[in-house]
């Protein structure tokens, strides 16, 4: 009997156990990014910009030149790095609190300038690192530690749809929303990430991949239940799809 290995850890991924909670899909998104970096053979010219939040330690898991940005400012850091090093491949990796709350100005303006960077936006509808507070993407009625009775739109407004909002801008080249909740979505998420990095490498402009993710710990669910909850509740609010595509 002959054995052929058909799935293994990507080369640009550092061989350690992550700090993420069991079932947290940050790990899936990290692995996909590393796989794309390997497949495009860009490890030595890739620069990662990590956010503040659960994924602050992104650089402990992906072995590329890395910055750790201040909360919300990753697109500004990435913009400048890319302008000074045009041959590099620069991506930021940001959660919903980082990108859609404190960093709203930076993401909108980086997109509007058409910065040739790739932004990976992890939307799990909650603040993870700080312990489950309401996020700008928390669903109406969804409970969080700072909206214990569920998000009330009269008090806190409605979940922000980043892809739809950024797609109103002229400059961005590629905007898409995917998920990593189940394998069928994850396969498509990797295709989206590949296209996003290629958009940058080909100089076509700003690329943005929103990834719907789970946070079993702060949602108070078992990991498998969280993937089902994401499908049932997040996907109707945040529909998957391509909102802008390079010409």
């Amino acid at each position: 009997m002959k054995e052929t290995k058909i799935f293994e850890k990507p080369k640009s991924m550092i061989d350690v156990t992550t700090h993420y909670c069991p079932g947290c899909t940050h790990g899936v998104a990290h692995r996909l990014v590393a796989e794309v970096i390997d497949e495009l053979q860009i490890q030595e010219r890739t620069v990662a910009v990590a956010p503040v939040g659960c994924s602050v330690f992104l650089y402990n898991y992906i072995n590329v030149d890395s910055y750790e940005a201040a909360h919300g400012r990753a697109p500004a850091v990435a913009s400048a790095c890319k302008r000074l090093l045009p041959d590099s491949v620069v991506f930021s990796y940001q959660g919903d609190g980082d990108l859609a709350s404190i960093g709203m100005a930076e993401i909108v303006h980086a997109a509007n300038r058409g910065e040739k960077i790739t932004v990976i936006f992890i939307n799990n509808a909650i603040y993870g690192m700080t312990g489950g507070q309401m996020a700008p993407t928390t669903l109406v009625g969804q409970k969080a530690t700072t909206c214990p009775l569920g998000r009330d739109p009269k008090l806190a407004g409605y979940p922000i749809r980043m892809c739809e909002m950024l797609a109103t801008l002229q400059a961005p080249a590629y905007i898409t929303r995917v998920s990593v909740a189940k394998p069928k979505y994850t396969i498509k998420a990797k295709e989206a990430l590949t296209k996003a990095f290629q958009t940058q490498i080909e100089g076509k402009g700003f690329s943005f991949v929103e990834i719907l993710s789970t946070c079993p710990t702060n949602w108070g669910m078992r990991p498998v239940d969280a993937t089902n909850w994401l499908e049932e509740h997040m996907m109707p609010e945040f529909p998957l799809g391509v909102f802008k595509t390079p010409e």
Binding site: Y67, R73, A76, V77, A80, E106, H109
Partner: peptide
């Protein structure tokens, strides 16, 4: 060179962070 007008001082200084990280004079 590069001149970039940021959207705010907050963004400007973080662009400096990103630019300075390349070791060039900024």
């Amino acid at each position: 060179g590069v001149y970039l007008q940021a959207e705010s001082e907050v963004a400007a200084v973080n662009m400096i962070f990103g630019a300075a990280g390349t070791g060039k004079r900024v």
